[in-house]
């Protein structure tokens, strides 16, 4: 069983990302969408947490490219190891995992 977790809130505004990362299992995927992508910027408080989670939890972390572009976050400013996906990639992730869990 693997889960795709989606987080659509900034880590600076809600605890959704923290709570999500605390409830993942190795093999799960976390996809940051909407204001969730703000957390993926390198050299930031939330970005450091993401980097740590990447190293410790065995999850894959993704960010939706269209939401990054809208918020002026270039790909080269992402935390190392966070992968950019487009909408088709979002669909693929949903299909590859057994369930989708939205952290609203």
């Amino acid at each position: 069983m693997s889960i795709l977790h989606t987080v659509n809130k900034s880590a600076y505004e809600r605890n959704a990302l923290d709570s999500c990362l605390g409830h993942t299992k190795p093999g799960d995927s976390v996809l940051l969408i909407e204001d969730g992508v703000i957390s993926a910027r390198a050299g930031s408080v939330a970005g450091d947490k993401l980097a740590a989670a990447l190293g410790e939890t065995g999850v894959s972390i993704y960010a939706l490219g269209a939401d990054m572009a809208a918020r002026g976050i270039p790909e080269d400013k992402l935390v190392d190891g966070v992968k950019v996906v487009d909408y088709a990639g979002f669909v693929d992730l949903a299909a590859e995992n057994d369930a989708v869990e939205a952290w609203l």
């Binding site: 703000i38 939401d67 572009a69 809208a70 918020r71 002026g72």
Partner: peptide
């Protein structure tokens, strides 16, 4: 997060 309102290079086409 209000600082993101005036960030450079916003592209909302997507």
């Amino acid at each position: 997060d209000g600082v993101y309102q005036i960030i450079k290079g916003q592209d909302t086409k997507g």
